[in-house]
């Protein structure tokens, strides 16, 4: 499989995420789109990890090149999990205050 395909797939998924953030007003869906973007990046990281490992394995079958990329994915998941817990807490609080999760209500930055 050429690496290009994975890149394209990731870019498409990422752009779908961006489009979702831009077009939806529901804060929870916006949040989900962000998760989608994170996963697109994760996919690309794993693909590159694989690519580098495959190239190195030609000369040395026992090489561990590529481990770093996968561990990065792992840490991204860790951070994403933490982010989701806090983010959802904020959304819950917002809902409690304004009884809505429409991000257009979040225009307090104006003043």
């Amino acid at each position: 499989m050429p690496i290009d395909y994975y890149i394209y797939l990731s870019v498409i998924l990422f752009s779908i995420g961006v489009t979702g953030v831009l077009t939806r007003r529901n804060a929870i869906i916006v949040f989900m789109c962000i998760e989608l973007m994170l996963n697109a990046v994760n996919l690309l990281l794993v693909a590159f990890s694989k690519m580098h490992h495959a190239r190195a394995a030609v000369s040395d079958a026992a090489t561990s090149i590529g481990t770093d990329g996968q561990l990065f994915v792992f840490f991204i998941m860790v951070v994403a999990a933490a982010e989701v817990s806090v983010g959802l807490a904020i959304i819950v609080m917002m809902y409690r205050n304004v009884h809505n999760v429409d991000i257009n209500f979040l225009n307090r930055l104006k003043n």
Partner: peptide, 14 residues
């Protein structure tokens, strides 16, 4: 331009 609307900011960012 500073509408305070998060959506617009994100759009501009993209």
């Amino acid at each position: 331009v500073q509408s305070g609307n998060v959506g617009n900011y994100v759009l501009l960012m993209v």
